[in-house]
């Protein structure tokens, strides 16, 4: 009996060792602070902002998103043109790369998820369900809080 227990404990130790030894491979995406600005109904488009962190060992990329609250979703960025004018364009290549070990900020006046043909009112306190599509990590469902920007 004692021998069996010893064997069992030994096997457990081996499994634990194996778990420790092999680093998790691939990307590991963490989404934080997802929010959107309140906007009037006549504003057909809205923007979502968030912090995307890749704690993994491999690059990943945000390639799109879906939500019942939006007719269509596109990944856009605002940028300053020559002469100080502001422009907005779909992100180059249609994706936002999240390099391994790095953090990418989607923020006002920069990268954002554009919600076209809003289906709901973006009132403060509203929670919008959003499914983010990543190249490698697949679908990640999140909740976007509609609130006023903090200074």
């Amino acid at each position: 009996m004692k021998r069996f227990v010893g064997l069992f404990v030994g096997m457990l130790a081996l499994v634990a060792l194996a778990a420790c030894g092999s680093k998790p491979q691939g990307p590991k995406i963490v989404i934080e602070n997802a929010w959107g600005r309140p906007s009037p109904k006549v504003a057909t488009a809205g923007a979502f902002y968030m912090t995307i962190r890749n704690e993994g060992t491999e690059d990943d990329a945000l390639i799109g998103a879906d939500s019942d609250a939006c007719g269509t979703i596109e990944l856009h960025e605002s940028y300053m043109k020559e002469g100080g004018a502001m422009g907005m364009r779909p992100v180059p290549g249609g994706k936002i790369v999240i390099p391994a070990g790095e953090t990418v900020e989607l923020k006002m006046g920069g990268l954002h998820i554009m919600c076209i043909d809003k289906q709901v009112d973006f009132q403060p306190g509203t929670k919008v369900k959003l499914i983010l599509h990543f190249e490698k990590s697949g679908d990640i469902p999140i909740e976007v809080e509609i609130r006023n920007p903090m200074n």
Binding site: R37, T44, A45, G46, A47, H76, S78, M86, N148, P149
Partner: peptide, 12 residues
């Protein structure tokens, strides 16, 4: 009004 990012940022 279609502007979702730059204009609301300034108006805010």
């Amino acid at each position: 009004t279609f502007c979702p990012d730059v204009c609301p940022t300034t108006l805010t």
